[in-house]
Amino acid sequence: MDIEKLQLQPAYRVVSDDLRQRIVRGEVLQGDAIPTEGELAASYGVHRSTIREGLRQLEQDGLLRREGKKLVVSIPRHSDLANAAERALRMHQVTFRDVWEVASSLEPLCAQLAAERITPDELAAVARNLERTAATVAAGQSAVTSTIEFQALVAEATHNQALQLARAPVSQLMRAGYAAIAPALPQSGERLLEAHRHVLDALQRHDAEAAVQWTRKHLVDYRRGCEYAGLDLDAPIPLGV
């Protein structure tokens, strides 16, 4: 008989998976303390070391956090999820083209929804970002960080959690392209600033069509800039960039 070997999970993974499902189902809520290691070990019938390793997995995933000696349920922060997804995408060797294609769909959608939903406070935050970007460009410095922040502020104004989580790691991966473009095209800062000014104007007027148009124009410029800087669009984005 052809019999496949059993694929048995380590006990700590069984524990962490079961606790993860209970958290997701809402059996324990955000801020609730979970039982102690000793209590969990007795309930699951395993050693405390097994429980400790299972809990460590959940801490790393952002589902548990320490408050003194207690472990309480928490909701992973957007930044933690984005960083983890970015690392995974790099390890899967996503290319500059992969990232540009996805951004070309997600960022215009963000601009459209933001134009329809943005609040006065959110408009003020975008305007402040634009002022910082203008000062950075005028000083001849890289505007990469403020550009990533601008995109994040527009995404937050969509009030769509799924969209924000989907586009965050992609936006972070675009940093590598911006970093290559800036020294190769000194005028890129002014072009970027112009696009952002038009996007802000469209958001202030709640003009979704114009916001989408200028976001797409900026993304076309991004791709051309990558090519001019000598980047191979089909090359994986390197780690640590």
Rank of each mutant, 00 (worst) to 15 (best):
R20T: 01
L8T: 09
A115L: 06
H218Q: 10
Q164C: 11
L6V: 15
A162H: 08
P76H: 11
Q21N: 06
I118M: 11
S16E: 04
V72T: 07
D221T: 07
E190A: 04
S74N: 05
I3D: 15
M91S: 12
V220W: 10
A195P: 03
L113Q: 15
Y178H: 09
Q204C: 04
L219S: 07
L200Y: 04
W214F: 15
E4A: 07
R224E: 13
Q151G: 09
R223K: 10
E27D: 12
E59V: 13
Y12D: 12
L63I: 03
K217E: 15
V220H: 07
E27A: 03
R128Y: 04
P108D: 13
C226N: 13
Y44E: 02
E190M: 07
A138R: 11
D98E: 12
H92K: 10
Q164Y: 03
G225A: 10
R56P: 00
V170A: 08
L19Y: 00
E101C: 04
P238V: 10
S104L: 08
D17T: 01
L58G: 02
A114I: 08
N129W: 01
G68A: 05
G189Q: 02
R205S: 06
Y178T: 02
L106D: 04
A33F: 05
Q204G: 08
A179G: 01
Y12M: 04
R65N: 04
S171I: 09
A88K: 06
V99G: 05
L19P: 00
Q7M: 14
R117P: 05
L233F: 10
L192K: 06
N83E: 14
A152V: 01
P236G: 14
A111S: 11
A195L: 05
I237E: 12
L64F: 09
